[in-house]
């Protein structure tokens, strides 16, 4: 991980010349293929996107268009079959499994459609988990987890287990867990997919607040009114970017 020795500014200087200096995510000609027996599924088929600090982006598109695949790629859970991806100047395709794990821990906060909380652990313990892997000590860990839980409005429910919480509350725990290690980006794959519309609005309001406070957010959704909360909308079709524009301009 030779490039890890450089600081962010130095790493950014190594990127293609047309990339803005505050880009968090840069993909070039990103491909991801799945081989199913004799058939090859091209989940991503040349994706070029650039996302800058403090953007709030919604990724839309029909089912099977490659939204989740792209999110996994951006979240360093997966690596491209072809093309380049820089996260904060780190060239992700060069990293091994453990480097990817450390990047996920430090740079990325995930929110999933199915919450993905540990069922036997309390809300607090769930939120502490990324800090455990970051090597943060017990007391500081607890304090930081409590702070973030209060921030998402769950100060009263910290010691409950996931099955004692409503869907909306669970998703708030998940958001708190995603935020606790101060990631450079918050990734959410259909975070409101399992919630009713009122709860969905609450979660989206939370996202808007986080965005106003400076958080970079990328969100996958099916629903246009959820996407309305984002400032920029990227539409995928057949593993390619079909359109990419500001929400304000789409309405104009």
């Amino acid at each position: 991980m030779a490039r890890g020795m450089l600081d962010t500014a130095e790493r950014m200087a190594l990127l293609p010349g047309d990339v803005p200096r505050d880009a968090v995510i840069v993909t070039r000609n990103l491909h991801r293929e799945y081989v199913m027996g004799t058939e090859v599924v091209r989940a991503l088929n040349g994706v070029d996107i650039t996302i800058r600090r403090n953007e709030f982006v919604a990724i839309m598109g029909p089912s099977g268009s490659g939204k989740s695949t792209l999110m996994n790629m951006i979240g360093c859970l997966d690596t491209p079959s072809e093309g380049e991806y820089w996260l904060n100047g780190h060239r992700v395709s060069e990293l091994d499994d453990d480097d990817l794990a450390r990047i996920r821990n430090k740079e990325i906060g995930f929110v999933f459609q199915t919450f993905n909380l540990l069922p036997r652990a309390s809300a607090l313990a769930n939120v502490e988990l990324p800090l455990v892997y970051a090597g943060v000590g017990g007391r500081e860990r607890r304090e930081r987890a409590e702070t973030v839980l209060k921030q998402v409005g769950l100060g009263e429910r910290m010691h409950h287990r996931p099955n004692e919480l409503s869907g909306g509350q669970r998703q708030r725990v998940a958001v708190a867990r995603a935020l606790v290690n101060k990631p450079s980006i918050l990734l959410a794959d259909e975070p409101t997919g399992n919630l009713d519309s009122a709860t969905s609005v609450e979660i989206m309001d939370l996202f808007e607040t986080l965005h106003r406070e400076g958080q970079t957010i990328i969100l996958v959704t099916h629903e246009p009114d959820i996407a309305e909360h984002a400032k920029r909308q990227i539409i995928l079709r057949d593993g390619k970017v079909a359109s990419d524009g500001l929400t304000a301009e789409i309405h104009a």
Partner: peptide
């Protein structure tokens, strides 16, 4: 889940 949150091998 643990791996997604940064647990190494």
């Amino acid at each position: 889940i643990r791996k997604a949150l940064g647990a190494t091998r």
